[in-house]
Amino acid sequence: MDNLNDLKKIWLSADTSGLPDTATIMRAICKYRSQKLIKKAALILAAIFLTAVMISVVFLYKSVMISTRLGEACIIGAGLILVFTNIGSIGRLYNLKSLSNKEFIAYLEQVKINRAKYYRKTQVIGLSLVSLGLLLYIYEGVRLYLWLLLASYVFVLLYILVMWLVVRPRVYKRQAKKLDATIKEMKRLADQF
């Protein structure tokens, strides 16, 4: 095109006065960082809090049955898994630098592998521990009344079944679908080069 210089003149005439000033951008940066941090930190704190509650229950509530102690141990174990998994994920988030598109695709592929591994191993262990822990833990409290025992176990079993058979696969499927779509789109863009 012979008129590239004319196009440059038009291009450079774009009004950039509406851009935020440096103070605004600094506030946005602080907000962005804190939002990301707060979200993850809230999850970790919630997991730590629940684990701490369970640990305090171990000392405050003098259970007489071994099943209760085992239940407590299982739930504490699951809580610790949740805490450490999320601490690891914060580290990965902050190690993500400004990558090129090819490196970004590789990063997404790695996220996909990690998620599948989490779904097949870590989450199975965590959820199994919580499920087993709940079933064991409630026995001592409800064993004296048959109707209470039955109602409690039906409720807990239903909750566990819904978590295993509905929530868990659905959440994974939704996340995997979103990630696949992103990877596909990134590859399509990479192919244009």
């Binding site: 935020p20 951008i25 940066i29 960082r33 400004s98």
Partner: peptide, 15 residues
């Protein structure tokens, strides 16, 4: 475009 500019400079600041 303003949002993308802002995101770009967040990444610039971080890195």
């Amino acid at each position: 475009a303003r949002d993308l500019t802002q995101e770009t400079f967040i990444a610039v600041w971080q890195n």
